[in-house]
Design a protein around this nucleic acid. Structure first.
Lengths: 149, 149
DNA sequence: AAGCTAGTTGAGACTGGCTCGCAACTAGGC
DNA sequence: GCCTAGTTGCGAGCCAGTCTCAACTAGCTT
């Protein structure tokens, strides 16, 4: 809930209205443990009897992406998903390929690598996207406990 | 053309048939300078009078992705595209955001960074995706020559 | 408390990327 | 040249995401 509050106050700061639909979307996102799709938000909003129109879900999500409160990730499957995240600081996400949970990691010294690439290719790199996929500690343990199946 | 040959022989090695449709797709890909979409392949095949059905384009592209001859990239816009690339070695792509040209870069010392992340998050990272976007040397010069517009 | 208005929403038609099912076709071994 | 399983083409279908526009409302104003 606190997270949805953060979203709501960020909306206010950006001079956006705090509408019922946006509250519902914020709540639905706050309820997500890891990454989620627009479809998930839609489903949660319906389940909670705060149904929001499909178009509005996409609009709100776009808005939140603009505000940096949510980020798009492209799953290895090619599907588009979103993750809630801290605004401001540049960071990346580590996504659990079993349960979908996602964790943020900081800038982590990519800078020198980027510089090396710029030097060797002549490109002026202005944006990059690093997405990491693997098993979170819980799923690792679960997998170890029950190796087959 | 040599690249399309590489594709064709790789198909043979994988025990796949060398059909007319696949040749057409291979040629269309060889003709692409940078990233391209399934739609591009379709358009080229038609322009060359070797029209391939939409479904077949997707099937062939999937096949080539499986064989590691082509890779999917997700553009910052969220669109899916493909890039032709060397099979085997793990590598990443630098994509020019102006002209779409793409260049491969090697593994470039990401390993220690991944290890640091594994240590700090407890995740067992088994795959990652690093996509770099920026201006290639030509487009940089073009941009410098004509700063406005 | 009521009014005002621009930002926002809902509904549903629409688009475009991609997949499916199946009969027809053909690459490549014999 | 024959055979057959792997492929293809076609067209229908599916689904995420977008668009349009009239109706609604958040939040300022009076």
């Amino acid at each position: 809930m606190e997270q949805s509050n953060a979203v709501l106050s960020a909306l206010g700061d950006a001079g956006k209205r705090l509408t019922v639909a946006r509250r519902a979307v914020a709540e639905a996102i706050a309820e997500q443990a890891g990454h989620f799709t627009a479809e998930d938000v839609l489903a949660v909003s319906r389940r909670r009897r705060r149904a929001v129109a499909r178009a509005t879900v996409f609009r709100s999500l776009d808005l939140l992406v603009d505000l940096g409160l949510v980020e798009r990730v492209d799953l290895p499957s090619g599907d588009h998903a979103y993750v809630a995240c801290e605004p401001d600081a540049h960071h990346h996400h580590v996504v659990c390929s079993a349960c979908g949970r996602s964790v943020e990691v900081g800038e982590l010294g990519l800078r020198p690598i980027l510089e090396r690439i710029e030097f060797s290719t002549g490109f002026a790199i202005d944006s990059h996207r690093l997405e990491l996929f693997g098993l979170c500690p819980e799923c690792r343990m679960a997998a170890a406990a029950k190796p087959s199946a």
